[in-house]
Design a protein around this nucleic acid. Structure first.
Lengths: 190, 190, 190, 190
DNA sequence: GATGAATGAGTTTTCATTCAT
DNA sequence: TATGAATGAAAACTCATTCAT
């Protein structure tokens, strides 16, 4: 089996393990066993446990960002663009539940990855809230953007435990919240 | 030194350690050393590492809840009651930074405490969003309440790194967001 | 068993193991087993494998130096003082065979201990050759002192495999060599 | 590239690695990388790590011995023959620093090669000290020869760290020491 | 002949946890 | 009650060594 294929396979397994047990409690032994490789392979491919974790966070973050950014169609009015982003975000959560759990947990944690994950979150916050900076003061815009992202994360986690709710309902609710928040902030800020 | 006093002291130290290093990386050795107790004492008082952690989460969650619930003055109109809760929440975050970090990290994680922490979060969500249930459908109200709490958490974390922002500004912004969100949800839900 | 006693016991065992297998090939597992302690004790007492090794080298080097230095009776003429040192050196090799093997091997090696062991060797060279510096040029005196020490080391190792030779014969031979060497060097140097 | 050439190239690299890191800490991986060969080649050529090490020691020991033995011109008086050998020895150390380090370290150690290295050392001792056996008792001659060789080794190592000393000065000093030693031993032994 | 891919076996190290005093 | 001393169990990581191609 060629290296690149196996790498992806290992990352999938690692995601499963890290999603269930977290970084510390997930062991290389278990990942190796589930991926049906020997531990030395893990180290040959990813260098260390942290390396493997970073690689996973990296892949997942990249995927999420690509969706968010790719969803922007400049010919659409802001409202619709935002709506599309929300839908893409929810689709990502739905389709990569492990990835979302790991990513989200790491966003809340403060480990050796803070830097990189913080950067990712910043980019997400920017991707979601770029239009705010032209309308609100710096700190206010920042705060609102973070609040919106945090609301989305929380909503996503709630949804993982309420899969009976349809994605479009959720998108409606989240969209309505975001739009109202932005409007209210602008009105107050002006 | 009476036991109950020493227990509180140990919990304080444990909070400091867990906030910095997380559950796994924080060691009983370090907690014992910082609290100036022997390790067997820790076990005599809390039974196990998990016991100590649970005790800390428990105390912290109880404190937060008391503030949120105690802030409610039934003679006030809903808007103001919500506003008071937001202020209490922010005050808690400000005054118990360790506690907030541990609590928040654990809320994002899915470790051995899921049950209890989930219950705590639920109660917070309820405390924040109780008025929604009379106005919106069950799932919608739930989702919005979770979104509001998530936004608050995210805002609180952002604030920890932007202490130059005043608490009242933050409360204004959060309040504005929540009010707009609730109104919009009601309008749409009706 | 009190800690200090057990420490010495562990050091004895470690010396046996390191003398037989060398630093790398001697395992903490084996030392723990032979000393009848658990591995964590080794780490609690000495911090790391290197720490244990250093502790052993340290103790052994100190013992050797004490003998060499303690043997000097200032009221005696140089010839006899040197002779006494030679006897003390050989007595040490005879009584601490493990220690000598480890020390000598490490003196030849270039591991993480170079600094300390080099310092020890320097002190031995000085202890043996201090009288030379008043009689020969700096480099010449240094070189001769190193040669004398090297000859003694080599002689000592040869002796370990020829225990039938008496200590006093060996001392005679070594002494004769050293005296002749010093005289010849002085004659040439003057 | 023909096998025999590549073998020599690999041995050179192995010497560099073993000289720097020692037998245990030097890895086949590193040797393969530096020699620009794959690891299986190493095994095809030398069978095992120990095989490679032995081959290197072997080649180096052979080179040293050839120089020592080849330097003997029977038509010369003993004094000059010895002097020539000393010069050849120092030239070897100077020109094969890696080789000398590995050889010397291994002579001090007692690893899996004891037999072979001991044999080599014996031959060197004999080459250097053959003339002693006709003049001294067996054990005495042996001991003195070992002492002389040990002095030379120690001197050589000292020289590696004092390259500013000229080779001829060193040869003078060593020569003077050896001649005096031998004379003194003969006088005493007779 | 040559190698990319793979691993079994072993290493040091850490930590929650418990006796004996 | 309180602790110094001790450990079982498991973790990350490394390396000499070998197939399949």
């Amino acid at each position: 089996m060629p290296r690149s294929v196996r790498e992806q396979l290992i990352l999938d397994v690692a995601g499963r393990v890290f999603a269930r047990a977290g970084y510390h409690a997930g062991s290389m032994e278990e990942i190796a066993a589930l991926a049906d490789v020997s531990k030395p392979m893990l180290y040959a491919y990813f260098g260390s446990k942290e390396g493997l974790y970073v690689a996973y966070i990296d892949r997942t973050g990249r995927q999420l960002l690509e969706r968010l950014v790719g969803a922007a169609d400049p010919s659409q009015p802001p409202r619709l663009r935002l709506r599309r982003r929300i839908e893409e975000f929810l689709a990502f959560v739905d389709e990569h539940q492990d990835g979302w759990k790991v990513l989200f947990r790491e966003m809340a944690a403060s480990g050796p990855l803070v830097r990189e994950v913080a950067a990712l979150r910043t980019r997400i916050v920017e991707a979601v809230g770029d239009m705010l900076h032209s309308l609100l003061s710096g700190a206010h815009a920042d705060a609102i953007a973070h609040a919106i992202v945090g609301a989305g994360e929380s909503l996503a986690n709630w949804w993982l435990e309420h899969p009976e709710v349809s994605r479009s309902d959720l998108a409606d609710w989240y969209d309505g919240m975001v739009q109202a928040t932005v409007w209210a902030a602008i009105r107050r800020g002006s």
